[in-house]
Design a protein around this nucleic acid. Sequence first.
DNA 1: AATTTTCCATAGTGATCGATACGAAACCTG
DNA 2: CAGGTTTCGTATCGATCACTATGGAAAATT
Lengths: 185, 185
Amino acid sequence: MHLFWQHGYEATSLAMLREAMGLTPPQIYNAFTDKETLFRKALARYHETEIGFALDALSAPVPTHDAIRRLLLGAAEAYSRPGKPGGCLFVSGALAASPQAQAIADELKGYREASEAAIAQRLAKGQAVGDLPEGFSVESFAKYIAGVMNGMSIQARDGASAEELRIMARTALAALPPEGQKRGA
Amino acid sequence: MHLFWQHGYEATSLAMLREAMGLTPPQIYNAFTDKETLFRKALARYHETEIGFALDALSAPVPTHDAIRRLLLGAAEAYSRPGKPGGCLFVSGALAASPQAQAIADELKGYREASEAAIAQRLAKGQAVGDLPEGFSVESFAKYIAGVMNGMSIQARDGASAEELRIMARTALAALPPEGQKRGA
DNA sequence: AATTTTCCATAGTGATCGATACGAAACCTG
DNA sequence: CAGGTTTCGTATCGATCACTATGGAAAATT
């Protein structure tokens, strides 16, 4: 997973994986069928172990502003963990790919779009309970938040520290519209 | 240039370049020495022809807010031009690379860092003339703006339209601090 | 203990990578 | 029109890619 995260799908060779896992080629193919299946297993593991912060943030019983804050600050931390490749595997894994690996690139694009959709859903919920103004486009803002996270992923890859990413996250939060009036307030 | 932009440095094969340029392999190597030099030529051409908006925006004799607005709206347009690969070559060219192509990845990282530095320089100039508050960190905000542009590049690659990118740009601009008092005003 | 069976690492498969050696065609000179 | 030179495309180079067939060692059974 770390190799795919660091070098991307295509640039990670079987020889690198073999050495890192301490397995012989037949062992790898017995266990994972082929390289593409192995990569998908790595994606699933990444989803489970590295970016739980996102689901946690979006499903936490807190006001919408706080949920988005948790999301962005969680990303700042997850994208700059010591000992891990910087950024997000969903971005680094295959942003540009050869025609043969188009299916992999599309799969990662699907993950990114799912993230954006999850943000939009959380914003829509916030709008429904009055955390956000009526005339507010949740889709547009979700695209902004998802885009900022993608940008943080690249900044992390370029060496940005956790603190620098946190500052970027807090700056991005300033674009949120002022908190709406709660119905009961 | 379009092939490198679309598929990245490593995933673009000589066979693809040969077909696209209508040249034989020796012609390519006579003209460009090797693949790496050809890529650097493509980078230079990209810098000259596709992203002049950035230098224009940062050097325009307008208030700082307007300069940053021009920068982000210019990116929205440049990253979604019809007939061109989406996003920015400096991001798509080699975000993740094999160990053999580390030099290329580092070069692109250098371009990204130079962009961020140029933004910081423009913000510092704005702070000097009172467009921005005193206690404002130009480095942090430059990292935010550069990060947003990188994020726009990925959103564009995922199919975001020019209008969607413009909305993202305007949303990002809302994070700018309120315009400071001009000295003479 | 002898024999069979199972398993697994080594060695190699065809394909493709970036890059180039060689033969043919074209061209300028005498 | 002949000779010498230069240019240029084909065919191929060694290396590496993802992937697999095969030989030999270990294990299991009689």
